[in-house]
Simulated scan of single mutants.
Amino acid sequence: FGTMSENELLEICGSCEQSSTHPVAESIVSYCKDIKLDNPEKLTEIAGHGISAVLGGKNILCGNERLMKENNLTFPQADNIASTPVYIAVDGKVEGIIIVSDTVKNSSPSAIKQLKDMGLYTSMLTGDKPSNAEIIGNQLGIDYVKGGLLPDEKLKEINNIRKNKGAVMFTGDGINDAPVLAGADVGGAMHTGADLALEAADAVFMNSEPESVVKAKKIADTTLRISYENIIFALAIKAIVLILGMSGHPDMWLAVFADSGTAMLLILNSIRILNIKKYK
């Protein structure tokens, strides 16, 4: 709807988005792999909105509807409900729009099902359009879906979920997720995420597959169970030896077993955690 060609819009948007780790930005840059991209003279990533940059002496805005509205720019609405629109404005005029369709990873439905089978409450908090979020959430069978959220609004949602459901683990990878990763009881970031997200997270997943969260939960559950086993076993042995000593049956070897022997048994029991094959 502007005066620029498709290639010109892709070149401008790809040049601005190449420094971002947002999934939408990465999709656009990947699509522009055959186009020569330039480095902006100035660039600012605005959380929950998009990017403001100076490219070739021109003021560029690449982002969502919020960014356009805050800069008092008029733009047509995207027709595709199941998509994420990225508007491109040059020197105060919206020149075009790039539609990025959301796709679900093949492993996502299985990961969500496994989490729910563990008795966990699942939710999706995203800055994408609420209509997009509802469609993806319904496909995956997620319990609670909320779209159109800014970083501080995500944090409020996390606090509400914590009040109603208990401790919360949040997984994300964007700069917008950093406050929520820090505010959750456990924050997990994908290794391909923004540096700020990686620093705010308690754990970093070394791949971007949703089933990594399932695996981490299984390892955590096993670790907790073995910790309880070790505590109960150690206290039981100490109590038995103490009772035998008080009843007049002291024995040096019994004391050695209660101390060093028990420690060795607990270490051997803990080594079972290293058997990661069973978590796959």
Rank of each mutant, 00 (worst) to 15 (best):
A78L: 11
M252H: 05
N39W: 03
G96C: 10
T103G: 09
E65L: 15
D128M: 12
C16A: 13
G248M: 11
I158S: 09
N106Y: 03
I28R: 03
D177K: 01
W253G: 03
I28W: 05
E70T: 13
H49L: 15
L115W: 00
D185Q: 07
A189R: 06
S123P: 02
V54R: 11
P76S: 06
M252Y: 12
P210M: 04
S260Q: 03
A133N: 09
N164T: 06
A167S: 12
I267C: 08
M68L: 15
G147K: 08
G50P: 15
S83M: 04
S108Y: 03
S270Q: 00
T103S: 12
N176I: 09
N230I: 11
F1P: 12
I51W: 06
R225F: 12
L37D: 07
A178Q: 08
T3P: 10
H191K: 00
I99F: 02
V24I: 14
F75S: 02
M118W: 00
R272N: 05
L67F: 08
A53E: 08
F170D: 00
K215D: 01
P23L: 06
A133Y: 04
D259T: 02
L115Q: 01
L43F: 06
S19L: 12
E26M: 11
G166E: 11
S212E: 01
A25C: 07
G2P: 15
G63T: 10
I276V: 08
V86F: 10
S247F: 15
T223N: 03
K156D: 14
A178G: 14
E6A: 09
S52W: 04
I219L: 05
G137D: 06
T103F: 08
I136N: 03
K42W: 13
L73S: 01
S27M: 07
V168D: 02
S52M: 10
C16D: 06
D34G: 12
